[in-house]
Simulated assay, not measured.
Amino acid sequence: MANENMRLSQAGRAALTHTEAVRRTHYNDQGNNCTLGVGTLVHYGPCTAQEMAAPPLPDAVVRQHLDRGVDRAERLVRHAVRAHDLTQAQFDAAVSFVYNTGATRPLRVANTGNLAEVAR
């Protein structure tokens, strides 16, 4: 199976962390959903007053949330793109996309090798 051994590269992880930024407290993201850490969704809808008042998360907890989200996104990408080998940069971009959106349907076209369509 294509991409079965691929993992997010260190450069991909750094780019994801830079793009998302590290926030050690709860915040409402652009969609007004409660989020923390490196873009980790806590729940849909705004944070409660109690969540907003919670103490900052230690770095280790932020990393745990990020690691779980990246592991999930990697699995989803590997499952969605089985018939076409991705380059490391393409895999990193796909993992970042899935990490941020949770959507894998747009990646299924990658199985055909039509990467221009994937980018669109």
Rank of each mutant, 00 (worst) to 15 (best):
R120N: 14
A80C: 05
H18Y: 14
H84F: 08
A53T: 07
S96W: 01
A119D: 06
F97T: 12
D67S: 14
T48Q: 07
T112N: 12
V109T: 15
V38R: 07
R7N: 03
A53H: 01
T48E: 08
H26D: 02
G69W: 06
E4G: 12
L86A: 08
R78V: 12
T17F: 00
Q90L: 13
N32F: 01
N33L: 10
H65W: 13
L57H: 04
E74A: 11
E4D: 14
P55W: 00
T40C: 02
A73K: 13
P56T: 03
H65M: 11
V62D: 14
Q88A: 04
E117Q: 15
L66H: 05
F91H: 12
Y99E: 07
V118M: 08
V109R: 14
T112K: 13
L57Y: 02
V22W: 11
P55K: 11
T101G: 09
A83P: 02
R75K: 08
N28F: 04
T104N: 06
R68K: 13
G102C: 03
R72G: 07
L41A: 02
G102Q: 10
N114Q: 09
D29R: 02
N32H: 08
M6Q: 14
C34F: 02
H84C: 07
H79R: 10
V98W: 01
T25I: 08
Q64I: 01
T19R: 13
